[in-house]
Design a protein around this nucleic acid. Structure first.
Lengths: 258, 258
DNA sequence: CGTGATAAG
DNA sequence: CTTAACACG
């Protein structure tokens, strides 16, 4: 089973840049999209029909602000995933942040984690989100489920996960507070799969600022991740970053499970 | 002397579309620009230097709202025009509407007349503007000056001046009120030069809506005009509409004086 | 429909 | 630097 996550920075934008070609080539079984920034009905009708012919679509745009945030999860129809919008907490659900998709004892929890924003004005919101999400994951584990947590987490966990750690200790995505909160997911029993399999490999990034050719020079951040319950780790066949895929300031990431 | 007027719908935009090539080819002696929509300092430095090497530049952006309205008048340095920003009425001057340029007994009054706007919400403002401007022209005549009044007047004077008169009697630019107010300029002693020389020629337009290929089908309006004091009419050598010049939803117009 | 300001990232 | 909403025309 091939699981993918991609912050597309505007679904309508990425549609103009070959998203459908990528979708047909990558053939994900489950795909989480973040920053869709539109209603499903605002996307091209032909595209919608084509996607709906193969996938169960759970489209979860923000209701709080038009064109802002939002996430979606697509799963191949034959897999029979059940999709639920939100974690039941209005502050996050109004921004279309997380979708919980289940099949048997597997919970695929995916979406768009808050950005701490300029001046860290949203750091308190993001910290509460991390606490609530970690508790949510813990409850799933106690209920006997195995969890995949993925999406744009808007935090680089360690110094190795960004090109310029020293320059960014006070910046959104690499503050001590955000890194500390990231550990709550690990303490809830999840493993950062790609880093687990590549402990010392530097230069593995999933996001590059659009300013000044950062992507060409690979001055990036690894902020899009797959975390998996420890009990799932023996099923992991592959974890990859698809840095060659253009169309957004993020690139897709994937996890292949046996 | 070749006088030009052009609503450029964003000076920075038209710069990207060959404005400087046009300027060098047209070689205007005096040029009024409308809807400049930027500060002089926001335009490309090379462009500014090139223009300033040949022209006295009177740049008159709106102070009331960034990126809104504004006008400019350029005159060849060797002509020695004196430029004055505004008519001394704050409501118009804050929007960078009119520039008064004088040389000897000639007053070149040029700029961006108000748009009545959707729902005609600005019709009262536009009517007062017309009264004030007509009075301003009258005062110039009584002071012994000859007047050229030009710019985007945002009104089609007669049915012949737009492709769809019947459809637009309630729309901004062709209401009975705006057409009535236009006559104030004529009553102040000015002549609509192009119409005076081409009384029955239809299809002479200077603006086309960007929606639905109106320009290609020449479904337009003549709302950019040169009006001249009757005493100047014997000096008129030519009055033209340059509909082939692209780069804005308006095209340039010109008046050649002996 | 296009230009430009703005919010957000 | 880029996406999308918005104001204005």
């Amino acid at each position: 089973m091939k699981l993918y996550s991609w912050n597309v920075n505007g679904f309508r934008s990425v549609l103009k840049k070959g998203f459908m070609d990528w979708l047909e080539a990558a053939e994900p079984d489950v795909l989480s999209l973040q920053e869709i920034r539109c209603e499903w009905e605002e996307a091209d009708l032909g595209v919608r029909r084509q996607i709906e012919s193969a996938y169960d679509v759970c489209w979860f745009p923000a209701t709080s602000k038009k064109g802002y945030a939002g996430s979606a999860t697509l799963s191949r129809k034959e897999l029979g995933f059940t999709h639920a919008k939100g974690m039941g907490i209005e502050a996050y659900d109004a921004e279309g942040r997380m979708i919980v998709s289940t099949k048997g004892d597997l919970a695929f929890i995916a979406g768009y984690f808050p950005n701490a924003s300029q001046g860290l004005v949203r750091l308190p919101f993001k910290r509460q989100f991390a606490r609530d999400l970690a508790a949510f994951v813990g409850a799933r584990h106690r209920a006997g489920q195995k969890v995949i947590l993925t999406g744009d987490m808007n935090v680089a966990p360690e110094e190795i996960d960004l090109a310029r750690p020293k320059d960014n200790v006070k910046n959104p995505g690499f503050t001590p507070e955000e890194r500390e909160d990231f550990k709550l997911y690990l303490e809830a029993g999840l493993v950062d799969v790609l880093r687990d399999r590549n402990p010392d490999v530097a230069g593995l990034y999933t996001w590059w600022t659009a300013r000044g050719g950062a992507r060409e020079r690979n001055v990036g951040w690894r902020i899009d991740l797959f975390l998996a319950s420890r009990s799932l780790m023996d099923r992991v066949k592959d974890a990859r970053i698809h840095a060659d895929v253009l169309g957004s300031d993020h690139c897709p990431i994937s996890l292949e499970l046996a």
